[in-house]
Design a protein around this nucleic acid. Structure first.
Lengths: 219, 219
DNA sequence: ATAATTATTTAGATTTGTCTAAATATTTAT
DNA sequence: ATAAATATTTAGACAAATCTAAATAATTAT
């Protein structure tokens, strides 16, 4: 089955949203894809015709086995290109998402398998997310919570969920990257901001919005 | 100016055809792009609006300075990706054209400049064609003629103009690649086929059609 | 359980890039 | 120089992906 770029983006976003909920709503998908609910309804019909999703009017969207397979292929391509950009072309991790977003749509199994081999068959990408193998098998994401919900004191950064340039640049400026260790100093209930401290640095305060997008696990 | 993929392909093809003739005809461009003359007329109007081509009804198409600049950027991307695929991912030269055709549409100057650097700023691609630098400057294609018109006896293969998989696979099977030295043994006037001999190998006969697409220079 | 709110779908339009068939212009051959 | 052949453009249509505005369904709050 040959997917258009638009269809690939839908499938990928549905997969992403389904990690949280078992069924994806029209509105959530529209928001994720920066489009309008009416457009999502239109595309849902097309993807259903192609057997990539289960969909009944007003009942939400869920990937079929075939859709899941397609999504994993796209994610594999995306994450391998991110590795390439960071490892070989010395991009920094916050720059690569947008580029990988374009490169991922070059559909060639041979290319992607050779790329994987060239990179040493990596199993996590520069944001800490696991990379599906050629058969769609992928390591389970390690147990992690967002920083705003973590209850341990000493934590290590494992991933960043919102990959907007703005957030990633902010983190970069603060010296926060994958593997950075940090300590939660205080929670401020007033606005749910969090004070954290990196090693050998003064404490900094982080808004709830930022904290929600930093994934961590206990050290 | 931001070009769509379709617009980029038109600009690139116009550039290619203009190396031969100063003005490109609607039909020639339609044939090159595997589309219909009517579609070319439609697109010509758009490209004219964007100041990428000079175009008057019935008078043919020619790139403006701006259009030429755009074309050279696209060609740069294409040829650098070909280098990457051959040098780093061990593709053979006849496989890479189609893939580069897709990769070339990822528009990021930073990406392409880093890729160039990573490859050691190559100045010719795996087919022997020169690669424009970041400013659009490109070595003049070395003086070369097609094999069917060469008058010297001892020749070296410098490029292949038709990059169809069929032809490239044929050449590969015969052991003919960039840099291969060959000797013209005979011309057969009957069908304009040519008998050639590679070192340490029996002579082989090559049709006029193939000979037209192999570029050579005297050794 | 009904009203109000929110979510989703439908209907109809738009843009991009393409097509076919018909009309018109240009070139070539007589 | 005219007719025939060829090349190009126009007119009108279509598919993909999107949109807005209106209609309808589902959820929630009273």
């Amino acid at each position: 089955m040959n997917l258009s770029i638009a269809e690939e983006n839908y499938v990928k976003s549905i997969y992403k949203l389904q990690e949280g909920e078992s069924v994806v709503t029209t509105n959530a998908l529209a928001y994720e894809l920066n489009t309008k609910p009416a457009s999502v309804t239109d595309m849902a019909r097309k993807l259903k015709d192609k057997s990539l999703i289960d969909y009944e009017k007003y009942r939400g969207i869920a990937l079929t086995a075939e859709g899941r397979k397609a999504a994993l292929q796209i994610i594999r391509r995306h994450r391998l290109w991110e590795c390439f950009l960071v490892d070989k072309l010395s991009f920094s991790w916050e720059e690569v998402h947008e580029l990988a977003e374009e490169l991922e749509h070059v559909r060639s199994e041979k290319l992607i398998n050779r790329l994987s081999e060239y990179l040493g068959n990596p199993i996590i990408d520069p944001h800490g997310d696991p990379i599906p193998d050629a058969h769609g098998k992928m390591a389970k994401p390690r147990p992690q919570t967002s920083l705003d919900q973590a209850n341990a004191k000493r934590l290590v950064v494992t991933a960043v969920t919102d990959q907007s340039v703005a957030l990633l640049a902010f983190l970069n400026a603060k010296g926060i990257k994958l593997g950075t260790q940090l300590e939660v100093v205080a929670h401020y209930e007033y606005d749910n901001s969090i004070e954290i401290k990196l090693k050998h640095q003064p404490a900094i305060t982080i808004s709830e919005q930022v904290a929600k997008n930093i994934m961590v696990r206990p050290v």
